[in-house]
Design a protein around this nucleic acid. Structure first.
Lengths: 132, 132
DNA sequence: AATCATTTTGACTTTTACGTCAATCTGGCA
DNA sequence: TGCCAGATTGACGTAAAAGTCAAAATGATT
């Protein structure tokens, strides 16, 4: 476990550009500390970046990712706000469950597509690719 | 089962704009037939639209959606092309499985977030919301 | 201390996926 | 046949999410 990461270390680890990371900082999603001017990313910053990229893979916008990340923050003291968070958690959960259904459907169709290809290859007397 | 749908019927059913549907047509993802100038959408067109929107929900770009839809087409006759499709099916499958892991992780974190809220509410003596 | 590679900042540009608006064109019906 | 709601086309506009480039600052190294 390292203490700090430089920006380029993170760009290499996660295959994103420095511009992207700085953009997320501008958007308030990460707040690396500074030594002089240079950014130093702590474990927590690295983890946040990881979470952001996960959100991106799932097709969430920056605004949505920001909203999700706010749910993780330590719960506020006001009842209305707490209830609001719980409500948003439920909404996100539904969205995620929809996405999961979408994935399962799509996976099923990919299976069919592959099978059709393999069938066609068999008809042509073509050997299917073996890995290795 | 209807024979044809008008564009506005589809905009209502799927909550998208006519502009969006026309955009997908421009991109070659749908090809409704025409009566004069007006578009008529068959069941198959409606199904394609459904698939496109599913892809969007999963965060795929138009280009990716186009690629996915090409995998569904009736398999070509050339061995190299067949193998290429099979390869791309595998790639997509991996992406989808990654997304599924992402979803499961995120769902887990949402559970924690909700629990933290409920705990906090209990501390405050606030009644959790009951549906109904 | 000079140099060289990084980093930062700021500004401008680009791509994607549509939104918006105006003008034209129908198809159906009173 | 005249009208009108709905559809089409084309052009331009825009928000999001970065990409790109230049200039200045910094840090490490010889």
């Amino acid at each position: 476990m390292r203490d700090y990461y430089t920006i380029t270390e993170l760009t290499r680890e996660f295959d994103v550009s420095t511009r992207t990371i700085r953009f997320y900082e501008d958007e308030g999603l990460i707040s690396p500390i500074r030594r002089g001017r240079t950014r130093l990313f702590r474990q927590s910053d690295r983890q946040l970046l990881k979470n952001i990229l996960r959100g991106k893979r799932l097709g969430f916008s920056i605004a949505e990712i920001r909203e999700i990340m706010q749910m993780y923050r330590s719960p506020p003291g006001e009842a209305g706000q707490l209830r609001a968070i719980v409500r948003r958690v439920h909404e996100k959960r539904e969205q995620l469950e929809q996405k999961r259904r979408d994935i399962d459907e799509l996976l099923g169709e990919l299976d069919s597509a592959e099978e059709a290809c393999l069938t066609r290859m068999a008809e042509l007397g073509v050997a299917p690719k073996v890995d290795g």
